[in-house]
């Protein structure tokens, strides 16, 4: 009853609860929150309290004193730490309702990986309820990504979307508002970062942090050899000497370091095409594959997949926000007829 009253003062939300970033789309508005999915926990004796959430907490990653732990409560697209996720969602929901007198109690649509288990989905649902949501709906991430990218999901025409997130890569073939084929591989932006860290340690004998690896990936990372070679100066702790040293990395080295996760993604795309019904495969061959998610921003990734599959590959506009925007569109259709878009557990 109280939740219903509070619901009158809350906006419906679509949440892309990602491994790397959490985005919130407010119904009839826009994306109003885009923060890293990081929570800093402070321990005082046996008591734990939230020290920071989002961008503030991300700045603490790898730089915390003993009593503060900056953690990422989502791993591989699903909840790794239930209570911390709940706290994080609570913070984000209240942040987008910060003018409210009452604790917000919105209807929430959360995007979940298509291959997540019932237990994982329930955990996300419970977490959102615990964070104050009045009702929680779940939608498969690739479906939200396809809607957000502007693919004609309602047509009797096959569309293939590859959503490369922080923890997972979702591949789906969609037709007539339904998922014909879907696959999820636990490879994403985080694996790219790990590969860069491993490469630098192996070849330069230096240790760099995840944040530095992410910066390297964003600035000079490439998935396909390009005519232009980029370079970046990096400082890392030399393992032999134990002191920070500076060295220079170029884009070809990063390309080499990313080979393993990239080939995993390409293999999944090929596998999806293999298992796709021939009519839909023909549609996909005619129009192409759409890339969404933060991973799609990796330079020349579309070129790599195109070369490997022989199909046209395009990157969606504003790929980072496709899932949240797609969830938002589904939310707008919620009261009408789009319940078939939502998953049922």
């Amino acid at each position: 009853m109280l939740k219903k009253i509070r619901g009158l003062f809350s906006s419906d939300l679509s949440i892309d609860l990602g491994t790397a970033n959490t985005l919130i789309f407010v119904r009839d508005k826009d994306i109003v929150l885009d923060e890293p999915s990081v929570v800093a926990i402070r321990e005082t004796g046996n008591q734990k309290s939230v020290a920071a959430v989002g961008a503030d907490a991300k700045r603490m990653l790898g730089r915390t004193p003993g009593n503060i732990t900056a953690i990422r409560p989502m791993k591989d697209g699903v909840i790794a730490d239930f209570h911390v996720t709940e706290k994080m969602l609570q913070y984000f929901i209240s942040k987008v309702h910060d003018n409210s007198f009452l604790t917000p109690s919105p209807r929430v649509l959360v995007c979940v990986p298509c291959k997540s288990t019932q237990v994982e989905r329930r955990a996300i649902k419970e977490s959102a309820m615990g964070a104050g949501a009045r009702e929680v709906y779940l939608i498969d991430e690739p479906m939200a990504a396809a809607i957000g990218a502007g693919l004609p999901v309602e047509e009797a025409h096959g569309s293939m979307v590859v959503d490369i997130g922080g923890g997972t890569t979702e591949i789906a073939v969609i037709s007539l508002n339904g998922i014909v084929y879907a696959d999820s591989v636990r490879v994403g932006g985080d694996r790219f970062d790990e590969s860069v860290v491993t490469y630098v340690r192996r070849n330069y004998g230096s240790l760099i942090g995840e944040s530095t690896a992410e910066r390297i990936k964003q600035e000079i990372g490439t998935a396909y050899p390009a005519s232009e070679v980029r370079e970046i100066d990096v400082r890392g702790r030399n393992l032999a000497e134990g002191i920070p040293r500076s060295f220079t990395l170029n884009s070809n080295e990063i390309l080499e370091s990313l080979q393993e996760p990239l080939s995993a993604i390409v293999q999944s795309v090929k596998s999806a095409l293999e298992q796709c019904p021939p009519e839909l495969a023909s549609d996909i061959a005619e129009r192409g594959i759409v890339l969404t998610g933060g991973g799609a921003l990796l330079r020349n990734l579309d070129r790599l997949i195109s070369e490997e599959t022989g199909l046209p590959v395009v990157v969606a506009e504003d790929p980072l926000t496709c899932v949240a925007r797609g969830g938002g569109k589904a939310l707008e259709m919620l009261d009408k007829h789009a319940f078939e878009l939502l998953t049922h557990d």
């Binding site: 906006s11 970033n21 885009d34 923060e35 961008a55 910060d98 007198f101 506009e317 980072l320 925007r325």
Partner: peptide
Amino acid sequence: KAGVKPLKSIGGGLEEPQRKGGGAK
């Protein structure tokens, strides 16, 4: 995306949502 503006940058420059129930406030 008619009616939907793309993000300019990650984590910043986002407009605050208008809240329903402003009258009650």
